[in-house]
Design a protein around this nucleic acid. Sequence first.
DNA 1: ACCAGTGCCGTTTTT
DNA 2: CGGCACTGGT
Length: 719
Amino acid sequence: MTSRSLLEGLNPEQLAAVTLPKQAALILAGAGSGKTRVLTTRIAWLLQTGQVSPQGILAVTFTNKAAKEMLTRISAMLPINTRGMWIGTFHGICNRLLRAHHREAGLPEAFQIMDSQDQLSLIKRLLKALNIDDEKYPAKQLQHFINGNKEAGLRAAQVVPYDDFTKRLVELYAAYEEQCQREGAVDFAELLLRCFELLTRNAMLRDHYRERFQHILVDEFQDTNKLQYLWLKLIAGDQAAIFAVGDDDQSIYAFRGAQVGNMFDFERDYQVKNVIKLEQNYRSFGNILDAANTLIQHNGTRLGKNLWTSAGSGQPLRVYEGSTDLDEAAFLVEEVKQLHREGLALQNMAILYRSNAQSRVIEHQLFSTGVPYRVYGGLRFFERQEIKHALAYLRLIANNDDDGALLRVINFPTRGIGARTIESIQSNARLSRASLWQAACSGGGSGRSGAAVAQFVNLIEDMRRRSEGLTLPEQVDMMLDQSGLRAFYHSEKDGQDRLDNLNELINAAMNYLAEADDRSLTGFLAHASLEAGDHQADAGADALQLMTVHSAKGLEFDAVFITGLEEGLFPHENASLDPAGLEEERRLMYVAITRARQKLYLTLSQSRMLHGQTRYNVGSRFLIEIPANLLHWLNKAQPAPKMGGFAPAGNSSARPTRSAQAEHGFHIGQSVLHAKFGVGVIIDCEGSGGGAHVQVNFGGSHGIKWLTLRSVDMLTASS
DNA sequence: ACCAGTGCCGTTTTT
DNA sequence: CGGCACTGGT
């Protein structure tokens, strides 16, 4: 492929980005603007023009999916062997570095990677061992504390406690570090931090990699956390060029440590002269982009960007207001069926919601009408219980000191090792500061339980011996038999699915062998932790897609339904309190809107069941922030409330849900307008006549208030 | 060792 | 309302 054909079809901004000289660059890539194309073409162009060899490329993404996509597209562009290039996730690349230099990093060769579940159970164990009151120090909170600090680049010793409580947390953080080290276990954040420290302390290694990686390309830069940015700066040194691609308007992961500020900092730290905006959108029709543009302009902190298309306006956005969540769901299903009849494939349509709980009603409706659908967000393959058990056996074979793995399987399937015995092993281990395995070996335990423990130790050692000379899939197969897992699920009455999954694990091992460089058991285990597998069940079939807005990021569909557009839900009540949170919710809405290619539906409901209670919500402010002329309300006239009174606003067909209706004409579920608080919905009534009260939900801005009907200066009835 | 009953809690999530 | 984690009983 010639360089001409490589660059063919790029728009001027894309072309400029692809062919930038070797300097720090920041590419502001709007939704649907060809971001991945720019990234991959840039790499291909650098290689093809001989500016760098594959070894000189380091490309970092957040998800394995994105990394794979990049690799595939580069391979399609260039007939080169992509092996030399390092393209992967932050965690995958750090894992690779730590495996190669485990000694220098102070880790055992077969160090294990804990996923969040493993990490949490280690913390619970630790708290129990230290006799910590888990009411005061919940494991989840400690986990959050530890990860937060690691992602800020801070070791326990570096955290400055500002009160006694934090001081204790820091002590527990230190104890946790010690325990991880003893077990040879590493959590996700540790991969990054350990790698960062390795390169900070070891000048030889640092210089080696700095010399090697001349071009560092970063995808989704707006999602990087503090440590990831530090890591990038460290590995780049001052000779490599960082090519950062991101979209501040699509930053929706601040809640897990992402710092959009890294984009501003990057521009300043490197005095980036090359800021290129990709604003031409190849995905959506004009009305959809106009809606997105106008909405996001309500945010104050932006780098600034406006999407445009040459595709024409397309249809208006359709809005449906249901009376109940059930009604909303029924509309969704009917509309999906209609579009399907018109020829849209189900898999090209998506129903999006802010939180997972909202899927239930919709799923129910889909199920009862027989529309095939697929929900994102269940357990992934490597997270399933039976797979975790199998992996625990493998981990124990690879690394005896993995206490978490030992505890998971020492008595599963049951082999007569009870809680008592396990506790005594644990206290022995604690006393001699050894691993559970070591304690179990020297156990000498009394009578029957001692024999059972010895038998378990033998079992593991026997499996390790048998492993020698076996291929990875054969090892897995052997373990399934020797451990008794296969027999156990075989005798379980509902065990067939789990049995199938266990056999699937053998396939997973085979696939791993075919693709991976490191073909060891340890490599496979790391792979299982770092790539927990597909999120969706049975892909392939034509099915409607259901997912949260977060998981929709990066995807696109012909028709998109954004549901639950109500104050408190979207924007979510927990986020609408502080301005930064609200702006993130708005970016989330921006992401949702820009998923749609052709048709975009916005739906809401006057009431919905939440936490076992019927809630009455106000329409989302996001509906108001989109220009009215882009919206086509399907089932009612758009309210045009005038300020200065307490008037039924909008829909007066909202059916009363309580029999306690008063003569004043107000009822539960009714929209009202207050001079000071704006539009709200009556959620409760009390009393009658002159002393009547109504409870009104004004949404995020003013919340829920009790108001007297009598105080006419506050509330003026005027219907 | 297992199960049923209770009580609590309730965004978003990748690695 | 519904999922889960934990408790106490058998």
